[in-house]
């Protein structure tokens, strides 16, 4: 008897220890990034770093604006493409599709989610980039290699399909049938019911899904790096090359360490990503768990 209780206690403390260790690692990541980025913050003030568009490490100028805007461009393009598509598709899956269709489509989304970023990048280079340079850009009378924020946006849009669809479907399924019945029995059509009742009820969840999609898009590194062109300039159109923050880190880390402050600048970039994504995730997860509780 005492032996059994002893084992129980051992497991309890062991697990608690692992949990604490894991939480400690997170704190260490945040702390480590801050310490490493600190020299840059002392060198220039935060606002200067974020708002300056001059990136010339050799002269000691680290303006992050081109990278921040590069990230914002690809993320926005990805959202413009994927959000309407995913909302429409999830409505269809929840409200109109047969059980069989729903049960065969949702696992496909898991497959899409399982495809590694590098393969999305390969697809982007093989398909998206040539299509843009040969077909889409000429439509607007623009000449481009195709390596552009637009290409990055398309690849990212496909990458965030699964997370958007799976959460939106889940959220829309929590809208009670009786609520929809209430609207239907007033003579609303199915579509009117969806627009003014289901979507309205599901709005917080849909927004949370979008925010999660955004944070996924902001952090995505390799696929975007492969198709975006990586020129440290502020993109002026969909067909311009851009240089998102994660690509900056991946391309330069460990290579330019002899330049003073470069290390700190890249760490600052990582810290920026960490803070933004942590914040976005935190907000949307809290919203989603509230929904689940009330659901």
């Amino acid at each position: 008897m005492t032996y059994r209780l002893w084992v129980d206690k051992l497991v309890q403390f062991g697990s608690a220890f692992l949990l604490a260790a894991k939480i400690l690692v997170v704190l260490m990541i945040a702390l480590g990034l801050t310490i490493k980025a600190w020299p840059l913050l002392q060198h220039e003030n935060l606002w200067e770093i974020l708002s300056s568009s001059v990136w010339s490490p050799l002269k000691g100028h680290f303006g992050f604006l081109p990278f921040i805007l590069g990230t914002i461009w690809v993320t926005l393009i990805a959202l413009i493409i994927s959000v309407p598509l995913c909302i429409m598709a999830s409505i269809y899956l929840v409200e109109f599709a047969s059980d069989r269709l729903r049960k065969s489509v949702l696992p496909l989304m898991n497959v899409l989610a399982a495809i590694p970023p590098v393969l999305y990048g390969v697809w982007g280079i093989l398909f998206v980039v040539p299509i843009i340079s040969q077909y889409i850009a000429p439509l607007f009378g623009i000449e481009t290699t195709g390596f552009s924020v637009f290409a990055g946006g398309i690849v990212l849009a496909v990458m965030i399909f699964p997370i958007l669809i799976s959460i939106m479907v889940e959220v829309m399924q929590t809208v009670p049938q009786e609520l929809k019945d209430a609207s239907l029995s007033l003579g609303a059509t199915h579509w009117e019911t969806i627009v003014s009742v289901s979507l309205r009820k599901a709005k917080p969840g849909i927004i949370a899904a979008i925010v999660l999609g955004i944070s996924r898009a902001i952090g995505e590194t390799i696929a975007v790096l492969m198709v975006c062109g990586n020129v440290p300039q502020i993109p002026a159109s969909w067909f311009d090359a851009g240089y998102p923050i994660p690509a900056l880190i991946a391309n330069n880390f460990g290579e330019m360490m002899s330049i003073p402050m470069y290390d700190a600048a890249l760490m600052f970039a990582a810290l920026l990503l960490f803070v933004i994504i942590f914040g976005f995730n935190l907000i949307s997860r809290i919203v989603l768990s509230r929904l689940e509780d009330h659901g």
């Binding site: 990541i29 990034l33 952090g219 991946a250 760490m267 995730n281």
Partner: peptide
């Protein structure tokens, strides 16, 4: 949701 590039860095 934390991207792997942050872990890597």
């Amino acid at each position: 949701g934390i991207p792997s590039i942050v872990y890597g860095a």
